[in-house]
Amino acid sequence: MGALSRSWRERALLTQEELVGLSVRTVRRWESGELRQPQSASLRLYAEALGLDAAEPATLTQAASGAAHPDARVVALAGTRITDAALLVRRARR
């Protein structure tokens, strides 16, 4: 969940301090992997602050619960620069 949440926050061009309604300590713990099961209300606030699309909050909830997401390879690319993603796709096709 840590890498995923960090990539979405960076995609939204927000700092940890700019996430309204969440403490910097909580966000830091999520992103470091120290906090593995955040409260559902906190997940909702996080999703709203980042402006996640309709499917992304479910992905975040699954990641928080430790469940594998069916699109794990796509989720792993969230927030990746397009050039990096293209390189990863080329490597995967080899």
Rank of each mutant, 00 (worst) to 15 (best):
T80I: 07
Q16L: 10
Y46N: 05
P57K: 11
E34T: 12
A58K: 14
A49S: 14
V24D: 03
T83E: 15
G21W: 02
R6T: 06
G79F: 07
L22Y: 00
R28A: 15
A85E: 13
L14W: 01
L43Y: 08
T80N: 09
A49Q: 04
E31T: 08
L52R: 12
D71A: 11
V74K: 07
V27H: 02
Q16D: 09
E10G: 07
E31F: 05
T80E: 11
V75N: 07
R91A: 04
S7I: 05
D84P: 11
A3F: 10
P38D: 09
E10A: 08
R90W: 07
R9V: 01
R36H: 11
L22A: 01
L60N: 05
D53V: 07
R91Y: 05
V75T: 08
S40R: 14
L13K: 08
M1Q: 03
E31I: 08
A76W: 08
T83L: 08
W8M: 11
L77F: 04
W8L: 14
R44F: 00
A85Q: 13
S23C: 12
S23Q: 10
A47Q: 07
E18L: 04
G2T: 03
L77C: 06
L45Y: 02
A54H: 08
E56C: 02
T59S: 11
L52N: 14
R91H: 06
L22F: 00
A86G: 02
V24N: 03
A72E: 15
D71L: 12
T59R: 02
G21H: 04
A86I: 05
L35Q: 14
L77S: 06
T61N: 01
G21E: 05
V89S: 06
L19D: 00
T15H: 02
D53A: 12
A12R: 02
L4P: 02
A64R: 01
Q39E: 12
G21N: 07
R28G: 14
A78D: 12
D71S: 13
A72Y: 15
M1A: 09
G79A: 08
A67F: 04
P70T: 09
L50M: 06
V89F: 06
H69W: 15
R6E: 13
R73S: 13
S23H: 10
R9H: 05
R28T: 15
E10S: 12
A86Q: 11
L4H: 02
W8C: 04
L43F: 12
A47C: 14
Y46V: 02
T61E: 00
W30F: 15
S5E: 06
P57V: 10
S42D: 03
R44E: 00
L88G: 06
P70D: 11
S5F: 11
T61K: 00
A55L: 04
L52E: 06
A78E: 12
A92E: 15
A54M: 05
I82M: 09
R93C: 10
G79D: 10
R29Q: 11
